[in-house]
Lab assay of single mutants.
Amino acid sequence: NQESVVAAVLIPINTALTVGMMTTRVVSPTGAPAEDIPRLISMQVNQVVPMGTTLMPDMVKGYAP
């Protein structure tokens, strides 16, 4: 099972992602793949992402898996 990126903390809208904001988990439906964490760092979210929420590609500005 592939791990997806999950918010480790509450991420406010327009916040640039840091490694400490993200964790990985096997979830369904799958979100952004765990191996993309290095690409996701410094990208901004376009909505509030509550802690424990799977990071879906459409939540991150300019990100395409």
Rank of each mutant, 00 (worst) to 15 (best):
P12H: 09
I37F: 04
L55A: 04
R39T: 10
M21F: 07
M43T: 05
T54L: 05
N46Q: 06
T53W: 14
P33S: 05
V45A: 00
I37Y: 00
V5Q: 03
P29N: 02
N14L: 09
M43Y: 02
A16E: 11
L40I: 05
I13N: 12
E35M: 12
P38L: 09
P33D: 01
M51K: 15
R25D: 08
T53F: 13
A8M: 08
Y63L: 02
P29W: 07
M43A: 00
M59N: 05
A16F: 15
T15F: 09
I41T: 03
I41W: 03
M21K: 01
V6K: 04
T30R: 15
N14V: 07
V9P: 04
G31Y: 01
I41C: 05
D58F: 15
E3G: 11
P65N: 10
R25W: 08
T23Q: 08
T24P: 08
M21T: 01
T54K: 00
A64Y: 14
S42W: 09
M51P: 10
P12Y: 09
P57G: 04
I37D: 03
P12I: 09
A34N: 04
T54Y: 06
V45M: 03
K61H: 12
Q44S: 10
V26I: 14
Q2L: 12
G31R: 03
G62L: 05
S42K: 07
Q44A: 07
L40S: 04
V6F: 04
D58P: 03
L17S: 01
V6Y: 05
K61W: 12
P57L: 09
P33F: 06
P12N: 10
G20K: 15
V27L: 02
Q2E: 11
N1D: 15
V49M: 02
V48E: 15
N46I: 10
S4F: 07
I13K: 15
G62A: 07
G31M: 04
R25N: 08
V5D: 01
G62K: 01
A34C: 09
A34D: 04
S4G: 05
E35Q: 13
V19M: 15
G62T: 05
P33W: 07
V5K: 00
V60P: 06
V60T: 05
P50N: 08
V45Q: 02
S28G: 00
P12F: 09
M59Y: 04
N1K: 12
T15G: 06
T30G: 11
A34M: 05
M22D: 07
V48W: 12
E35T: 13
T23W: 10
V27E: 06
P65R: 09
N46F: 09
N46E: 01
P65F: 09
S42I: 08
A7N: 00
L17W: 06
L17T: 03
A8Q: 05
T15V: 09
A7I: 08
A7T: 05
T30C: 13
Q44G: 01
D58Q: 13
A64I: 15
S28V: 13
V9I: 11
M59K: 04
R39H: 10
V60K: 03
P33G: 00
P29F: 07
V26M: 13
A32R: 02
V19R: 15
V6H: 01
T18R: 10
V26H: 12
V9S: 04
P50W: 09
T24W: 09
K61V: 14
M51C: 11
G31E: 01
S28T: 14
A7S: 05
G52T: 05
L10N: 13
P12W: 09
A16P: 13
T23F: 09
T53R: 11
E3F: 12
N14P: 02
K61M: 12
I11E: 01
V49H: 02
V26N: 11
I37E: 03
Q2I: 14
Q44N: 04
L55T: 00
P57A: 10
T30L: 15
I13P: 10
V19P: 11
A64S: 15
T18M: 08
A16W: 14
A7M: 07
V26S: 10
